[in-house]
């Protein structure tokens, strides 16, 4: 059994506590916005929040989120209205889009602790998230834009 709060709602699953959060979210619960990129904590495509902190769900067993609050891209806002999501559209950040859920969740963690990050703080915070299409400069612009709103 595993139980935790997912995007504000309680979840109870008959699942092996060793099962990884990524695949439980995607294949058992059906929230597919969180992506599989490397399976080894190296790219950040699977980033979600656990109690407000960004974690790599591809390396996180269910036992580690027992009784805790998990937030995925689907729960960041009910209607894509999070300042980061709006800024992501306005700055036209996504290209293939595959890494962007993870990028946005990682950026949301930053703004939750540092409302006005400098460029170098943004770079340091986001450096673990790979974007193969090369949207990094737009990610920075979008975070800077959103930081004016939060």
């Amino acid at each position: 059994m595993a139980s935790f709060t997912l995007n504000g709602k309680p979840v109870k699953l008959a699942a092996d506590p060793k099962s990884l959060l990524l695949w439980t979210l995607r294949d058992e619960i059906g929230l597919t916005g969180t992506k599989y990129g490397c399976g080894a904590g190296l790219c950040g495509a699977c980033t979600v929040h656990v109690d407000g902190k960004a974690v790599r769900s591809c390396m996180t067993p269910l036992a580690a989120v027992e009784g805790r609050k998990v937030t995925t891209i689907e729960g960041l806002s009910p209607d894509s209205s999070h300042p980061l999501q709006k800024a992501w559209v306005e700055q036209a950040v996504p290209q293939c889009g595959y890494c962007q859920s993870g990028q946005i969740m990682k950026a949301a963690e930053l703004l939750s602790v540092n409302k006005k990050p400098t460029r170098s703080q943004i770079v340091r915070h986001m450096d673990g998230n790979i974007c193969r299409c090369g949207t990094y400069h737009r990610i920075i612009a979008a975070i800077e834009q959103a930081s004016k709103e939060v």
Partner: peptide, 19 residues
């Protein structure tokens, strides 16, 4: 571009997401 909105909220469908 038309694919932007679905790519910021996790709804864009990749083959990886088909069930």
């Amino acid at each position: 571009r038309r694919d932007l909105p679905a790519k910021v909220n996790g709804t864009a469908q990749y083959a990886m997401d088909v069930k």
